[in-house]
Structures are given as C-alpha cells and as structure tokens.
C-alpha cells in the first residue's frame, strides 16, 4: 500500500537528516580552508550572522506557531544550518572548478549571498516538514502560514535576492527530492510573476541602472 502522508513526511525528514553530517553545524575542514583563503576571512561574520538570524527565526516561529513550538523552530534552524554549510561547500567546489580560483573573498563576504543561501536552506527544511500538511489539504500543528514567502520577512530578504540562489542550490544539492525541487520551482515562479515586482524591490533599481548604461552607449549603425 502507498505510505500515509505522515509516513511519507517522516521518511523525507529522515532522509534530510541522514544526508546531513551530524557535526555539520560548523564549517567542515574544506569550507574552513575556503574561508581562510579569502583576502578578508569571513568566519566570524558568518558565525555572528547565524546567531542573529537564528534568534530572529526562533522568535518569529514562536509567534506564528505558538510559544510551545519554539523548540521545533530551533530544531529546524539547526538542520537548515547544516544544509547551508553543505551546499555552500558544494557551490564553492563547483565555482573553483569552473573559474580556476580559490579566493572567493567577495562572494563569501557578501551578507546578501549568505542570507539568501540560508533562506533557501530553511525553505527546504520547512517544506520537508510541512509536506504532509500540503498533501492533506489541512495544516499540521505549526499551521501553513509558515510557507513561502514567510521566510523572506523573517530574514528581511528581498525576493529578487532569494531568486538568485535557487538554481545553484538545486545544482549543488543532488539529493533533493522531486517534491522539494517542485516546491522551489513554485517559489521561483511566484517571485518572477508577482513578488519581485512589488514596491521597493531591488529589481527596479537594477532595471534603472541597465537602462542608464544602455542609453550611454553609442548607437551602432545598422549593418548593410
């Protein structure tokens, strides 16, 4: 017989936990070397950011799901941190191969990159936990109001910046289930069709810059 929705969700959670190293709550030796190779070592900033965002996440999770659920929020954040480090390492290995460089100082000191990567990791963990509630059409004990784009408000991240990491994240983490990939694709479509066009989105500034640089370029004469 097919697994019950609860059983299917439990299996997905177990797989997610199993794919993440138990000591993965800190950078591996390889990732630490990438940090050390930077012109400016990002180790302290990365650690400090995780502490700040972890507190913000737990607080908002408690507000949305109830104070008795704060511990579940902390567990989910812990899993997301392991996924964040794992995917970051895979992304850097792939970039090293592609660009033949080992110094990723600019990328690794970019707060938006780290926040986007963490947001994507959290979204994957949250979606894995809430899979059963989607399939049931109901809500689990934490409620469905925690689903995307809830995480963007919690981490104060623009949808446009979140969008940038999705494809690289999927490429870097081959163990993601089809359901999770489909979920990330749904987030991507939501951003592209609606959220990135809301007032205040950095997309407008970027479009303005592109327009200005295009206007400054001399117009090429038409080829005969």
């Amino acid at each position: 017989p097919p697994p019950t929705p609860i059983r299917a969700a439990m299996t997905s959670i177990q797989m997610l936990r199993g794919d993440l190293p138990s000591n993965g709550d800190r950078p591996s030796a390889t990732l630490a070397t990438y940090f050390k190779n930077c012109t400016v070592d990002p180790t302290q900033d990365v650690q400090k950011r995780l502490e700040t965002l972890g507190q913000a996440f737990s607080q908002k999770f408690g507000e949305a799901a109830g104070p008795h659920c704060v511990v579940y929020g902390q567990q989910r954040f812990g899993l997301a941190v392991r996924l964040y480090y794992k995917v970051m390492e895979a992304m850097l290995k792939s970039e090293e191969k592609r660009l033949s460089v080992q110094n990723f100082s600019k990328l690794l000191n970019d707060a938006t990159f780290h926040t986007s990567l963490l947001a994507c990791s959290l979204e994957v963990v949250m979606a894995t936990y809430e899979e059963s509630s989607f399939k049931n059409g109901g809500g689990d004990q934490t409620g469905t109001n925690l689903c995307f784009p809830w995480i963007l408000n919690v981490l104060n991240l623009s949808a446009f910046d979140f969008y940038k990491v999705i494809e690289s994240f999927i490429k870097a983490e081959p163990t993601l289930s089809k359901d999770i990939i489909k979920h990330l694709e749904t987030c991507e479509n939501l951003i592209m069709e609606r959220i990135a066009w809301r007032t205040g989105s950095p997309l407008f500034e970027l479009l303005q810059q592109e327009h200005a640089s295009a206007a400054a370029e001399p117009v090429e004469t038409t080829a005969s």
Binding site: M91, L107, D110, F113, K164, V165, E167, I170, I181
Partner: peptide
C-alpha cells in the same frame, strides 16, 4: 514531469549572480 529546467549557461554561476567574478 517535475524535472527542474536549468536556465544558467555553463559559464554562469553563483559568483556572477552576486557580481563577484
């Protein structure tokens, strides 16, 4: 099918998306 459609070219990666190449 739920296969993800990859849009990035071989010469593009996360470094370019955050303007860091």
């Amino acid at each position: 099918s739920h296969d993800y459609h990859f849009g990035l070219e071989e010469h593009e990666g996360i470094s370019e998306l955050f303007d860091c190449d």
